[in-house]
């Protein structure tokens, strides 16, 4: 297997001097269900700059979620290290990172608490961390919801709003904690193209305000180039970095860029890499378990 990333630390494209640098070095993750070793991630290295939007694409079941879970602290890694702003998250002596509000995950199927109103969902983090009083936290939640264009939904329960609104509110729930990294795992997967484009605009707007580092897993190449500073194409399982596509389209971006020449060139470049891996995955008969 020819893999570019065995030489670690490809230079990140964005340098903004802010917080939220992730460095993944030689990370391997082996699942062991019933004694059968499943190598999900193999000696994978990737440097993500502070404030970068790093898009991860790759065949399903290749190990993207595994990598995200390792960063978030949902499960352990087998070897390698992951650092956040130079602090060790997990490594040889500490295989599982602690969960913390500096790295917040937005889930594929949405995980707003259905039993809390949207306002209380957003206010939840600052309250449980003891950073704000409940009254202050709710006030700030209202403010941030309004800023994100979500007026009048504070009193509603997640089950009462559209999935697009819920997903936006979930991102607000993350951002209210001022995280260093936002981890998104195919958040717009089930959405139609129109809703998606609205979600993209909303996300970029929130990004422009916060400049938080974003680690974004997706299947959608167009989405990855439209949103990302870099598109990281992963190999089929076990995951390694196959190719990194630098997206130097200036921000703020709007939908015009989708029809630009530059976009088409980048798309083709990424598509080639993804296609190659998709064929490999298909031939390996990997079942879709994402």
């Amino acid at each position: 297997m020819t893999v570019m990333s065995k030489n670690p630390a490809a230079a990140p494209a964005v340098q903004s001097g802010g917080k939220g640098a992730i460095s993944i070095r030689n990370v391997t993750k082996i699942y062991d269900p019933g004694g059968v070793n499943v190598v999900a991630v193999d000696n994978c290295s990737l440097e993500i700059a502070p404030g970068e939007i790093c898009m991860i694409v790759g065949p399903s079941g290749c190990g993207k979620t595994t990598l995200l879970n390792a960063i978030a602290g949902f499960h352990s890694i087998t070897s390698g290290t992951i650092h956040l702003d130079g602090e060790l998250l997990c490594g040889p002596d500490k295989p599982k990172a602690e969960q913390g509000a500096d790295r917040i995950v937005v889930f594929q199927n949405g995980a707003l608490f259905p039993w809390k109103t949207i306002r209380d969902n957003v206010a939840y983090g600052p309250i449980v961390q003891g950073r704000l009083s409940p009254v202050e936290a709710r006030g700030k939640a209202d403010h941030m919801l309004a800023e994100a264009g979500l007026h009048d939904v504070g009193d509603k329960y997640p089950g009462e709003v559209s999935s697009g609104m819920a997903r936006r509110a979930e991102i607000v729930r993350a951002l209210i904690n001022d995280p260093r990294v936002l981890l998104l795992d195919e958040p717009y997967r089930a959405m139609d193209a129109l809703t998606k484009s609205i979600m993209h605009e909303a996300l970029l707007e929130m990004y422009d305000r916060t400049k938080v580092t974003i680690f974004f897993i997706t299947h959608d190449l167009e989405e990855s180039i439209f949103l990302g500073d870099r598109v990281v194409v992963m190999t089929t399982r076990p995951a390694q970095v196959k190719k990194i596509v630098d997206v130097r389209i200036p921000r703020p971006r709007n939908y015009k860029v989708l029809s630009s020449n530059e976009f088409r060139v980048l798309f083709a470049e990424a598509k080639d890499a993804v296609h190659e891996e998709a064929i490999k995955a298909f031939e390996a008969g990997e079942r879709e378990l994402a």
Binding site: Q99, V105, Q129
Partner: peptide, 12 residues
Amino acid sequence: AYFRAAGCLGSK
């Protein structure tokens, strides 16, 4: 996912 979300958001 709700447990994970709660963990991410800093719950004890």
